[in-house]
């Protein structure tokens, strides 16, 4: 992931104390290889090696994608959004702001994929794309909350105002999740459809292993993408700063020389 602008080697650039126009480093390259290998092996296990389930048949294979996506997006993503937001309000540094922004964006994508895979799974197993199941409802509300967070980030060009307000929104949204969880559980609690319990100890050994391997793989994948998304956001910030500095320098140069 290097930009075409980078002509010199990273080492020479670093020697000149210049910031790199790349989101890559030795650590993330290694992390990326590991994440992709883990992802590929998880897919192989989920789609080919693990056995079909007794009642659901092959539809169960979607679960090895669906649940890890939900956990990585919902727990890791929203958790890091909350951490970044609190960090920003406390320290007021760009690092925390961009951490929250990057985590929220990935959480949005993972949540969208959770809803998609859930619908595709629901059609053969429940006979419908959408069921007003508490977890589905919670995920749908979470999805809209994350869209709102993103909308806030695009609504202002002032980086400080954007960071401050986004942090408050991130924190409020994260605090709302347990309340929404509680309300939808009660709301649909009386006639909840049976959901597969992945932690069921009677689960076949191979299925259990596939399940946990997928969870770990998707978490690593999420973190790898997060590092890159963060670095892109960081470079964007630098670019905006530099463009401003250059514009000021140009205007200064145009001004008539005073004795």
């Amino acid at each position: 992931m290097t930009t075409s602008a980078q002509v010199e080697t990273p080492r020479r650039r670093r020697g000149r104390n210049e910031r790199l126009a790349t989101t890559s480093s030795r650590f993330t390259r290694a992390l990326g290889v590991i994440a992709l290998l883990m992802g590929a092996s998880a897919l192989l296990l989920a789609l080919v090696i693990s056995p079909p389930e007794v009642t659901q048949g092959d539809a169960v294979r979607l679960f090895y994608l669906h649940v890890p996506l939900a956990v990585a997006g919902g727990y890791l993503g929203v958790g890091l959004l909350a951490v970044g937001s609190i960090g920003y309000l406390w320290k007021r540094t760009t690092f925390w702001d961009l951490l929250a922004a990057s985590a929220a964006e990935l959480a949005l994508i993972f949540t969208a994929l959770t809803l998609l895979t859930g619908s595709l799974w629901g059609r053969p197993v429940w006979g419908t794309y959408w069921e007003w199941d508490p977890r589905l409802t919670l995920t749908a509300v979470l999805f809209v909350l994350l869209i709102g967070y993103r909308a806030m980030r695009t609504a202002s060009v002032d980086p400080q105002l954007r960071a401050r307000r986004s942090a408050v929104i991130g924190l409020l949204a994260a605090a709302d999740v347990p309340l929404i969880r509680m309300s939808v559980d009660w709301w649909r609690g009386l006639h909840q459809t049976a959901t597969l319990n992945p932690l069921n100890p009677s689960l076949d050994g191979m299925m259990l292993f596939t399940f946990f391997w997928s969870m770990v793989s998707f978490a690593v994948l999420f973190l790898w993408l997060l590092v890159h998304r963060f670095r892109v956001a960081w470079l964007e910030e630098q670019l905006a700063d530099r463009a401003l500095d250059e514009a000021i320098a140009q205007r200064r140069a145009e001004a008539p020389q005073t004795p």
Partner: peptide, 12 residues
């Protein structure tokens, strides 16, 4: 922006 931010939050 206000309806988009506010309405999902008050779902409970």
């Amino acid at each position: 922006l206000l309806p988009l931010l506010f309405l999902p939050v008050v779902a409970p």
